[in-house]
Design a protein around this nucleic acid. Structure first.
Lengths: 137, 137
DNA sequence: AATAAATACTACAATAAAGTAGTATATAAG
DNA sequence: CTTATATACTACTTTATTGTAGTATTTATT
């Protein structure tokens, strides 16, 4: 996968929640629907709360609900919060000094891929998805 | 980085060698030029030999030389040999049943990114690079 | 044949990512 | 105020990737 597992999970959870963005989702329901392990999902949800995407409601009948409008959350925001978008902005051959002015042998070719990736994850937001298919595992 | 470290190293080494594709390169020279650790580079070169990209010349004054024309080696070939291209062809949200016929919420958006990536790595080959800048560390 | 200088192989070590266990804390409901 | 049920926290375990060490093998040179 291009993204890390954790980014993949974060996007999977948040895009699942975006289908009905004003309701509260319990950890249990998300775990059963999306087949992500209990403790791993809970830890990730705590992280996403701290980053301001969602808020958690503790105690009996608690769960998670969006704290920010899904329309305000781009995929790039989520990836950046979870694993850092910087991972995806560097030289494909790993040369630190590579730049537009000082390009590596593959720079111009690769920039096109990178721009496509970045523009897509920046423009795609959680409210603008095709909800005809919502997978549950 | 989108690619694994090992893919990055493999591409760095092979594109470096492609500047002068008929000469032999010793491990020592590649290590010094590209700052990849001794044993790691050697093991990777052995793998690349087994995959048919290069051949090794053992014994005194040995080294590595292309076994196949760089023009015949695409970036996708190298990535596939080193870490498997399948990692980059799946659903961005990790749903195994996601397909054109049964798309996940992000499928159509993501296909554009994936196609750009795949077409680029398939078309880019080791002979068709811009050698104005060859970095050495 | 001996030597020197190179690659090949096998096993191990270090690191980072992913996943798990157990306890603590919070809160709605009765 | 007690209980049930939820999330939060801390530490540990597992797995995959990356990197290292040491020995064996190969071969040009003398």
């Amino acid at each position: 996968m291009i993204l890390s597992n954790t980014s993949e999970y974060a996007l999977r959870i948040l895009s699942f929640m975006a289908k009905d963005p004003s309701r509260m989702y319990s950890a249990k329901y998300l775990i059963e629907s999306l087949h992500i392990s209990d403790k791993y999902l809970r830890r990730l949800m705590t992280d996403l709360s701290k980053k301001g995407f969602i808020k958690s409601i503790q105690g009996r009948d608690g769960g998670y609900i969006f704290d920010k409008s899904p329309a305000q959350i781009s995929f790039a925001d989520v990836i950046d919060a979870v694993e850092g978008i910087d991972k995806y902005t560097g030289c494909v051959l790993g040369f630190k000094q590579c730049s537009d002015e000082n390009p590596c042998v593959l720079h111009n070719t690769w920039v096109a891929v990178r721009e496509k990736f970045l523009s897509t994850v920046n423009q795609a937001n959680l409210a603008d998805l095709n909800f005809e298919n919502i997978y549950k595992y």
